[in-house]
Design a protein around this nucleic acid. Structure first.
Lengths: 189, 189, 189, 189
DNA sequence: AATGAATGAGTATTCATTCAT
DNA sequence: AATGAATGAATACTCATTCAT
């Protein structure tokens, strides 16, 4: 008893993220989270108003950083260099947040739609996509650009049976994402 | 009364797929499915042993066709042409099953992991991936190949705000998937 | 096991009324009701959609009869005789429903306001009151008329320590209610 | 900050009475009260030992005054004049306490029974009733006398849709209560 | 081919209360 | 005079599943 003090809120977030990523949001019960922390369910409610509120808190930082990224992108010229830099910065943010959040968002896409925070995240991703896409390019090139953000996720999960480091996965992901966003050799004539 | 006869099983599948795709597997209750069909929950249990069993039945055809595709692929030489044909045939299968199944699998990835059918599907996708990938190619090229199947899904959902037809989406998806699977100009020396 | 068949719904109503009247609606939990009936809580939900729904079902007949009474009253001339007959018929209805419902409504007035059925009952009582009141009479006479329905309730609870029969209570209640509704000897000049 | 000092106890009472009257005792939570006052729940516990204790404090003055009234009544001769004076004094007390307490007691009769203070109030009301009733009078007259205290409450709530002042309501209530307590023209011979 | 009735285990959420600081 | 953190017990309600008919 009394081993932890003041950090309960953070511990709830950590355990919740872990379990949400591992088993999904719906299938993770507050009882489970509470038990892992050796607190009562009611204690969770002291720190968060609802179950959804925990998720909101998890995405809060990430959303803020995404906003900044998009704002930055909008101020830049709509060039290939900008798009490449956007991919690089987005990758940095993604890896900074740790793998849990990525996985959570990836595997709970259905659930996220019902959560308010899901809508927010989706609108940010759309904002990012619009910056990555050259609207005058052919549809196939636009699709490739739209896929760039996914690439980073997929790179992480696709080669789970390969004997390579996370660093290699990451490098491959960024390389492909950059290529996808760079379009055909000469977009304009 | 008596409007439907003998087709109850199929009607259950149709409604279940619709609801699973729309709201997710966990959040769709058997009560909901039963109510939409004007039957009792117990009737569902006459036709399917469990809730999961409904999902299994939904993927049954798809899995069978995937098996055939993989078997076919294994008999072909591991050339770029084979890989491109695999992409084309996979796309045909995907579009033949309608958009519901695609969406279901895409948005419920977390849930699928717990379902036996999810494991099966995943192992098939891995089999397909192995055929699409040239193990001697650089990691980035391998990643691009691995992404090809995803491309078809993403093509469908990424441009929901564009004013284009499903046919155009599909064409773009296949084009990009083919490109991804085709690797760099000269894979071998 | 299996002692009762087909009557579960009615047994739930009986026990619920008993407990609601005895302890109040809020303080009576579904667990309590279920335990007294030796069924699970879920069984209650098979028969009633919500806790409030149980109350609704309890008042259903009563409300219907009240409606009929008011309809009848509106077709009669607005005379003292009509008002007296309304009181008599209302009393009959009240006593027919048994004492539980009376007591429930009386002691849970606050709660009833939040329940939809409470609003309905209140509007019926207002309809009845309007028939009992002579709008041209002095305010004090109107108040006396408005009190008539309460009289019947009060007669039941006021003399709980007297050694008299329910029949005597009832007779006294009706007598006073009739007097209250009859106004001053000569209302008009 | 620092707007109120020393008056917290009184502010708790005021808000509690308001909410109890508005929503009922059971349905008003201490959290709600605390939030309205911008204090924590624990602060309430500094001023009151339990939730019930808040109610007790609300009725304290009222109970004391009722005691005095009854003591006074017992010292008077059991005449009609005494009874009328009891009604007048009781009305004064009731109106002095404001409408909240009246309404609280009226709408939470069920709840009051479980609270110790409810028993106390009930016993006082019985004491008052005994003074208002002439035990030698016919049962109907006794019932009318017993109703007198209720009249004052009913007068307040019955005509909520009338366009009259509280003062008029009050006057009518007292007038009818006096009449009820005065019995038939010639009670004795 | 289906229903009516029920269960057991679970869910998120709320509440009055406590206590060290 | 009050807070921050937490508890234990409760609540209404839902779900997948079962089974006799």
């Amino acid at each position: 008893m009394g081993e932890h003090r003041g950090d309960t809120r953070a511990r709830i977030q950590a355990v919740a993220l872990e379990l949400f990523a591992e088993q999904g949001y719906e299938k993770t019960s507050l009882r489970e989270i509470a038990e892992r922390l050796n607190v009562t369910k009611a204690a969770l409610y002291y720190h968060f108003k609802t179950k959804e509120d925990i998720v909101v808190s998890l995405f809060d930082d990430q959303l803020g950083r995404l906003d900044e990224l998009i704002t930055w992108g909008r101020e830049q010229p709509a060039t290939q260099e900008t798009r490449q830099e956007l991919v690089r910065r987005y990758a940095d943010q993604l890896y900074a947040s740790g793998p849990g959040l990525m996985r959570f968002a990836h595997e709970n896409q259905g659930t996220m739609r019902d959560l308010a925070v899901g809508e927010k995240l989706k609108s940010r991703m759309k904002g990012l996509r619009e910056l990555l896409i050259d609207p005058k390019a052919p549809l196939t090139d636009q699709l490739k650009s739209a896929m760039a953000p996914f690439t980073l996720n997929i790179a992480h999960f696709a080669f789970d049976d390969y004997d390579i480091t996370d660093e290699e996965r990451r490098a491959a992901g960024i390389a492909v994402a950059l290529e996808l966003v760079s379009g055909s050799p000469h977009t304009d004539a």
